[in-house]
Amino acid sequence: MKKIIISENALAKLAALTTMQCYGVVGLVPENIGKRFLSLLVGDKLSRGVDVKIKGRQVSFTIYVVLQSGVKVSEVANIIVHQVSYKLEKLTGLKDIDVSVVIKGVKREA
């Protein structure tokens, strides 16, 4: 009998790293943060920008992102959903993955 346990934190990190690679994403932010302190997460804290909920066999991710202004926001969100569910399914073998994206901010063009 084998048993593999993947922690919520590991799942969150995987989702966060995948999101960071998506085109149009500038960064992740934690869920609860005042508008005035919108600072991007870096390094090990990255996974705080992802909420993981496990219910039976279903894993739900909610990802809080900041996007580049001037890109089609809805399409980028779609790409994130697609990429995260694809990568997570491939890397962990989980089947029932649910991804939501919350756009917390938009970064002004440089």
Binding site: C22, Y23, G24, G70, V71, K72, E75, V76, I79
Partner: peptide
């Protein structure tokens, strides 16, 4: 290209034209 941007490559394309 912004409104019609589809998929990753479509979004990048819109940025290129922009």
């Amino acid at each position: 290209t912004l409104i019609g941007g589809r998929g990753n490559s479509g979004v990048i394309l819109s940025q290129i034209f922009k």
